[in-house]
Amino acid sequence: MSSFVVGHLYATTKPQRIGENQAFTGIWKDSIEVADLDEQGIKGDIQVDRRVHGGTEKALHQYAIPSYAQLHAAFPELAARMPIGSMGENLTVLGMHEGNVHIGDIYRMGSALVQVSQPRNPCWKINSKFDDERLAKFIATQHINGWYYRVLEAGSVQVGDSMDLMERFNPISLRNFLEVYAEHRPNFLILRSLARCQGLTPSWQVKIQQRMEVLQRL
């Protein structure tokens, strides 16, 4: 089984305002060394808009370190303002990315047990934070979304802890998952295999089922 190392941990302690409507957001996070986890994520982390962030199915957000290099290359004028940790994630882990992480993967992270639940949908707040309307679309089309975890067992984790893959149920990587879902007319059988991924968040199962129904009517 694969083993990785926790590189960074982040939490929001004070929400800030963003956008034309000056809505509160938790996308700006502070670096921390130790985190206590429960089913809602990092204790003390403020998740402002819980319609789209937080809750048991999106308790923790991870963004891949290599994705920053891709963003810096595509948007060099933003690179200095876009260090690791600026995508609103709770953690980065050395060596993990969409190509080697699968829906449903279970990891032992410090003393906590977590499971990959769904990809992240990049939203307007990323564009607004960096004042560039191209960012969210680029992230989505390049399939460098990042992903969420549910917490199966509460525990604590600190920077430098190992993150060990305990179980893998599905053969499809997150990148493959996102590529198939983004196709204009994906293969029906492959799309069905996405919906059946063990550990996938129910709301995503519904989204995929709806696409399957559309394909059947074509």
Rank of each mutant, 00 (worst) to 15 (best):
S3E: 13
V5S: 07
V5R: 15
Y10I: 00
T13Q: 12
Q22S: 13
A23W: 05
A23Q: 11
T25K: 04
W28Q: 13
E33H: 12
V34Q: 09
A35L: 01
D36H: 10
I42G: 04
D49Q: 12
D49S: 01
R50G: 00
R50F: 00
R51L: 13
H53Y: 14
G54W: 03
T56F: 11
E57D: 14
A59M: 11
Y63H: 14
A64F: 03
A79W: 13
A80H: 09
A80P: 02
P83C: 02
P83N: 13
I84F: 11
M87Y: 00
E89S: 02
E89D: 03
V93T: 15
M96H: 03
H97P: 02
E98R: 08
E98W: 11
V101T: 15
D105T: 04
I106F: 08
R108G: 08
S111G: 00
L113I: 14
V116R: 06
V116M: 02
S117W: 10
Q118F: 02
Q118R: 11
N121Q: 14
P122E: 10
P122K: 01
C123L: 13
K125I: 03
D131F: 10
K137Y: 15
I139D: 01
A140I: 05
Q142L: 13
Q142H: 10
Q142E: 15
I144L: 09
G146T: 09
L152P: 05
A154I: 05
V157D: 06
D161K: 00
D164M: 15
E167Q: 15
R168D: 01
R168K: 11
P171E: 02
I172R: 08
R175G: 04
E179I: 11
E179W: 05
E179D: 07
V180W: 07
A182L: 05
E183N: 07
H184I: 11
P186S: 10
R192P: 01
R192E: 13
A195R: 05
R196Y: 07
Q198M: 07
P202T: 09
S203K: 11
S203D: 11
K207Q: 14
R211C: 00
R217N: 14
